[in-house]
Write a protein that binds this DNA or RNA. Structure first.
Lengths: 106, 106
DNA sequence: CTCCGGCATCAGCATAGGTTGATGCCATCA
DNA sequence: TGATGGCATCAACCTATGCTGATGCCGGAG
């Protein structure tokens, strides 16, 4: 078979939102665009830590960076979130049907 | 302040779906009810591993257990998934607005 | 041109969490 | 009632990953 496993893509992406600090950053960015210094003082985390998580979120397509003078602003990419939301919704819908069938054990 | 942070509850729950094996189990259970032995042969993981993840998923409210003879069947709880989906959808919606405002740096 | 401040990157450390082998419990069957 | 098989639990190990301190880059102000 070609795809014995399901796309681990989404899974890897979901994993990123599982980190508390990353989740906090995402929620902060869901309210307004912020630069790194804001995120530092809002979260209380140190600069390299924040910078690291922003990099991770950027590489995953969750945030977009926008250099502005010597500050760097970050904004959320709503699409990335809504794709995940839709995917989870689909899964929930299928789960409704799954309650009916049960695979026999022998 | 009482709640400087936002509810890490969802975050903790999302984290669970970030594990590849757990995600695989959830997707398998989204198709039909399965017992542990099915999940073992489907995933290729060993029995204690599967059992451990099922426990985690059960404690998080993602799956329900249903003892059936000497087999134990598991089924997905669609509600848990749809709650997450809705939450992510809300976040995406707010992110749309967030693109407009930007906090000044000084 | 020089200094400063915001930010990214790097190597090392520490903890969390997934996997494993061994073991015990319970239900079924002979 | 003893044997078997499905499943849960436990302690130990190990890898992944988040955090830290140090350093370098770059844009802007003087």
């Amino acid at each position: 078979m070609l795809m014995p496993e399901d796309p681990p893509v989404e899974t890897a992406v979901v994993k990123l939102l599982g980190d508390p600090l990353r989740a906090r950053i995402v929620r902060l960015l869901a309210e307004e665009q912020l630069c790194t210094c804001h995120l530092i003082e809002e979260t209380g985390a140190r600069q390299p830590t924040v910078s690291h998580h922003l990099r991770v979120l950027r590489e995953a397509g969750f945030v977009a960076t926008e250099p502005h003078g010597r500050y760097t602003y970050y904004r959320l990419r709503p699409e990335a979130l809504s794709v995940l939301a839709r995917s989870l919704g689909d899964l929930a819908a299928r789960a409704e049907q799954a309650a009916l069938s049960r695979r026999p054990c022998d």
